[in-house]
Nucleic acid binder design. Structure first.
Lengths: 249, 249
DNA sequence: CGACATGTTGAACCTCATCAACCGACGTGG
DNA sequence: CCACGTCGGTTGATGAGGTTCAACATGTCG
């Protein structure tokens, strides 16, 4: 569990960062980037470590450089819902507020690029492009959250799991755009354990396991290795997810 | 689909508008307000009218002046989830995008203050305070959407209904801050029908009806008139909602 | 007054949660 | 090197909570 801290991100070189041209940073002009550079602070978190606790003041925000971060909300009696999964280039934390009603936890080993919140807010205030990008990505997150409400409120267990896998396919295509792609069957990585999938989909690990077994049995997905699956027929998976066939061709 | 346009809001007088000091407009300087004034366009929608359709381009955004607007998302097979209920002063539509994956429908008779989207975006670009307020309210909406994911993913039928009623109590206290309030038992209005409650909570009308009957039977809520209920013990309701007692005293 | 929408109540069914056993992978220590 | 415990995942049996279907009550509007 103890994280091996490796300097994957050189804090003095935003220019060479793996997420330089993605997420918020993509909207940063060279000057803006230089300012962000000055307050950037790489941090490593081992899987299962807490990054931000519910309702506790935090003085930083961050970008995910590598790994998966889960956003959770816990009820007084301990029941917990995962309200978001953050992938590399996603933004962690709550700008313009001292604390936050959600906690953030490393779902795998995670590299964050942390920024002092006040300093970040000041920079955002000086660079309209940055603020605009922050607004746009917040709007996108809001749309995604509402899409997820449809899943939690309407969909059956099978549809939920299929939808989650579709999400992974989409993220892996986006992340690797420029790669080989398109040609062969799409392949996705399952980056989190059953408990986290269940927590995200609002169901139990047993049901998740059963549904994945079922999708494997009927050939909708095929095991490539321990963490990777291929999808011979994406339309089929999309159909099971209760979606129209994807048009991203 | 053609709304009956009644000039309840005088477009030439933002200053006297009932929501002048709430929502987005509260952040508008006199000059910004004058600019918004110039493009403001009141519209009336009868209950059940569609305001915005899923994935269809729209050229306006709006503020709710009166009434309730529901945001919905529909699956190919017709199942539908209400992903948001908008009250007076809330913002309708999607800035910085031509179309939107959600539809907006009048849940009661509704007055909107409509603004041409492009013109609105231009004004927002010129007034940083306005853009800041738009960002802050989007962040708040995102937090609210995630809170709702907890409800949809974790809570029992009774907890869902109790949570919804708590939401109404909170909104009615906020709306009427400055009124008598505090002294007597809080009273809230049920502004939508069972079907909309069910659609918002991800359950059926029958279950909603049963749970409300149950809350009436055990005295947690008391019928005042056809649309209003009083809450003798707010902590009790909060407890049933699976929340800690509210601290807004 | 009758028709239609909205809300309530009852009974049967079904999906998914719950509880429990089991399996394989992994790491530790004897 | 193997026994052992632990952890994540799978599979099976059972039952409860909520959906579904159906009937009925109430309210509203012509």
């Amino acid at each position: 569990m103890s994280g091996i801290v490796t300097p994957l991100v050189d804090p003095t070189h935003c220019e060479t960062c793996t997420i330089r041209h993605r997420g918020l940073c993509s909207a940063a002009s060279p000057e803006a980037l230089a300012e962000l550079n000055r307050i950037a602070n790489p941090h490593h978190y081992a899987a299962a470590q807490t990054i931000i606790s519910e309702d506790v003041p935090v003085d930083f925000v961050a970008n995910v450089v590598s790994g998966i971060v889960k956003l959770t909300k816990t009820m007084p009696d301990g029941r917990q819902q995962i309200v978001g999964l953050l992938f590399p280039s996603d933004f962690v934390g709550r700008a313009f507020a001292k604390s936050w009603a959600f906690s953030a936890e490393a779902a795998s080993d995670v590299e964050l690029c942390c920024l002092n919140r006040k300093a970040f807010e000041a920079i955002v205030g000086r660079y309209p492009d940055l603020k605009q990008q922050l607004l746009l990505s917040t709007l996108d997150e809001l749309d995604a959250a509402r899409e997820w409400m449809l899943l939690l409120g309407c969909k059956s267990a099978e549809e939920k799991v299929a939808s989650f896998l579709m999400l992974l396919v989409r993220r892996s295509i986006n992340a690797g755009c420029g790669q080989e792609a398109q040609s062969a069957d799409p392949i996705f990585e399952l980056p989190v354990n059953r408990a986290d999938i269940a927590g995200y989909l609002g169901m139990t690990v047993e049901t998740v396991s059963r549904q994945i077994s079922h999708l494997k049995a009927d050939g909708t997905i095929k095991l490539v290795d321990i963490r990777h699956y291929s999808v011979p027929d994406l339309n089929r998976l999309a159909g099971l997810a209760g979606q129209e066939p994807p048009v991203w061709a």
